[in-house]
């Protein structure tokens, strides 16, 4: 790890100003991702701005939405009464992530901004366009079992590893940020970006912008929901694929649906066409299968992740079945 300066401001503005002005300054929250990256020399900030003293931890109801402070811990959000009542899908997704120890350190803001787990990205001896633009994508012709099937480019085929984000994109959340130029609100589906020719840029957040909260509008998706994560071991592993499914069912007819996938793209992957295909249909396995097929349109796999072309739709079907059966 490189030497760095460390500051711990108590006002949002002080934190924002420092990171906006200083080229190599970075925010640190729980540190569960950033410290790993620093130890391996993948990022080398010369100043860390610890934001844990900022007043950004509250979870509250506001204007028909649940507003979750950026510093709320993954564990406390998952167990929060309001969240469990209004957004059980989010609670399930959070509990499917990492381990209890990590969830007790990791923050909501940090979770959204965690970097990919692509092994080439994590090893400075291997090529990676995301870590060092221009060196090539190690995974493209390499070991790509965990990699994307949607929205990849020939520059990068990495996936975004967050579970929480899959639920948030399904729930039409907004990201609230404060920056040197003021405050703005970013719809969750526009927060992360696809790799294109600039895989080194994960999100549309600008330098110096601080995430202050996410706002999750209240919906009727409070009962028939399921976050299903398929992984190599029962806990504490990243998703091979995951599915966030939410249904509103009346008289066995689907009134409304939300569907998103994790582990398949450079961003949490919302499946709007498949959602449309669900609405108005009976909540049966056949309907779910049709929606899953629509969801998989345009998917393209690589040498080691062909299985996602089958595991993906199967998991969608199963998550929808679980959601429909939820009581």
């Amino acid at each position: 790890m490189n030497q760095f300066q460390y500051v711990r401001p108590t006002k949002n503005k002080a934190a924002i100003d420092t990171v906006a002005k200083e080229q190599t300054a970075m925010f640190i929250a729980g540190g569960t991702n950033l410290l790993d990256l620093m130890k391996r020399g993948i990022v080398v900030p010369e100043k860390l701005v610890d934001i844990n003293k900022l007043p950004l931890r509250k979870i509250e109801k506001e204007n028909g939405a649940v507003r979750i402070g950026a510093l709320a811990l993954n564990g406390e959000v998952a167990e929060d009464k309001l969240v469990m009542e209004k957004h059980p899908l989010l609670s399930q997704a959070l509990n499917a992530g990492a381990s209890a120890q990590l969830r007790n350190m990791a923050t909501v803001g940090g979770n959204m901004l965690q970097r990919t787990r692509c092994p080439y990205f994590y090893d400075t001896a291997l090529p990676c366009n995301k870590r060092e633009p221009g060196t090539g994508c190690g995974a493209l012709q390499g070991y790509n079992r965990m990699h994307a099937i949607f929205g990849h480019s020939d520059k990068c085929i990495a996936v975004h590893p967050s579970d929480m984000s899959v639920a948030l994109v399904a729930l039409d959340a907004n990201v609230l940020v404060s920056g040197p130029k003021g405050d703005r609100k970013i719809p969750f589906s526009e927060f992360h970006r696809l790799p294109g020719d600039t895989p080194q840029i994960d999100t549309n957040l600008q330098k110096g912008e601080l995430i202050t909260a996410v706002e999750v509008p209240e919906t009727a998706f409070t009962k028939n929901v399921n976050y299903l994560k398929i992984r190599d071991r029962a806990s504490y592993a990243f998703a091979l694929v995951s599915v966030a499914a939410a249904l509103q069912i009346e008289n066995n007819t689907i009134k409304d649906a939300r569907l998103a996938m994790g582990g398949v793209a450079h961003k949490p992957w919302r499946l709007t066409d498949a959602e449309k295909a669900l609405v108005g249909k009976p909540a049966t396995e056949q309907t779910f299968r049709q929606a899953a097929e629509i969801a998989m349109r345009g998917a393209k796999a690589f040498e080691h992740n062909q299985y996602k072309l089958k595991l993906g739709p199967n998991t969608i079907v199963q998550a929808l079945k679980n959601a429909a059966a939820a009581v």
């Binding site: 381990s99 090893d123 291997l126 190599d232 071991r233 029962a234 806990s235 592993a237």
Partner: peptide, 15 residues
């Protein structure tokens, strides 16, 4: 390319 506990999976309690 699988050389940490995130990529090399030893079983956990839940397994």
């Amino acid at each position: 390319v699988t050389k940490d506990f995130a990529d090399y999976h030893v079983p956990v309690h839940a397994d």
